[in-house]
């Protein structure tokens, strides 16, 4: 059986697992919505749409939406399910079967990508009443879903590394908190050129900045290929790195 079919089978199983744990899915939607509402509520009047150039005529909620999308994509719950599999012995059951090691890694990541696409679509729908539109049109919407999903897979890959290395739910959960400093060291509230110099330098070195700017460009403007290229390059580079490290760890797993 090909690794592709095995990946699909394990991906389906991971999706089924998520659907059967709605209580774990709820915070991944609720917390990003909470941040969107609170940030828009607090700063919406500071940045009115008619006199704030970087909003391109939309509300401040449109500017904030990428942060919420990235937050929703960065819970990495796939890794926590993996720890459960390790602790419960199911991971060993799979390892003792002739299952491709890449399918063991990719099955969960692809399921995480699909789940992120659904969450992204739900968040966009929720953001519509706040005056958010996708200025880049249907093609932009598809790119938005794809880029957010790819980021979800990259971050889940990072979390899976912690899970495989530590085999501990507590350590994996704590590892996920790494995303918060990364999220706040971005042009999260204003564009990069309006940040203070130290923050601008930090944001420039932070890869999440480029994903956020690419997502934001899709929401606020027409297709900006140079910005999109940087965002996709970041997920491609980190995706390849995570895949390589995950595969190495699974193959050496003892």
């Amino acid at each position: 059986m090909s690794a592709l079919v095995q990946t699909e089978l394990l991906g389906r199983r991971a999706i089924r697992e998520s659907l059967r744990t709605p209580e774990a899915l709820a915070p991944t939607l609720f917390i990003p919505v909470f941040f969107l509402v609170v940030n828009f509520g607090q700063a919406g009047r500071i940045f009115p749409s008619d006199s704030t150039p970087f909003l391109y005529g939309q509300t401040y909620a449109a500017f904030q939406l990428p942060s919420s999308l990235l937050l929703a994509a960065s819970f990495g719950s796939a890794a926590l399910y993996l720890v459960e599999d390790i602790e419960g012995g199911y991971f060993d059951k799979l390892r003792a079967a002739p299952v491709s090691r890449s399918a063991l890694v990719l099955g969960r990541l692809i399921a995480e990508g699909a789940k992120t696409a659904l969450l992204t679509a739900a968040l966009i729908v929720i953001a519509l009443p706040f005056g958010v539109t996708i200025a880049s049109g249907p093609a932009g919407l598809v790119l938005l879903l794809v880029l957010t999903s790819l980021w979800g897979m990259v971050f889940a890959g990072f979390m899976q590394l912690i899970a495989l290395k530590t085999r501990s739910a507590a350590a994996t959960n704590s590892g996920g908190l790494v995303f918060f400093p990364l999220l706040f060291l971005t042009p999260n509230f204003v564009p990069r050129e309006l940040l203070t110099r130290p923050m601008e330098i930090a944001a420039t070195f932070n890869p999440v900045t480029y994903v956020m700017e690419a997502l934001r460009s899709l929401i606020l403007q027409d297709l900006q290929w140079d910005v999109l290229a940087r965002g996709f390059a970041v997920v491609a580079a980190f995706g390849a790195l995570m895949l390589f490290l995950n595969l190495r760890l699974v193959r050496r797993y003892d």
């Binding site: 059986m1 199983r13 599999d85 079967a97 002739p98 299952v99």
Partner: peptide, 20 residues
């Protein structure tokens, strides 16, 4: 080594599929 969220049938079927 079982996955508590699957049914018994799903688990066996998945295992059989993974074996080809």
């Amino acid at each position: 080594g079982l996955d508590p969220r699957q049914t018994g049938r799903e688990l066996i079927e998945l295992q059989a599929r993974l074996f080809g």
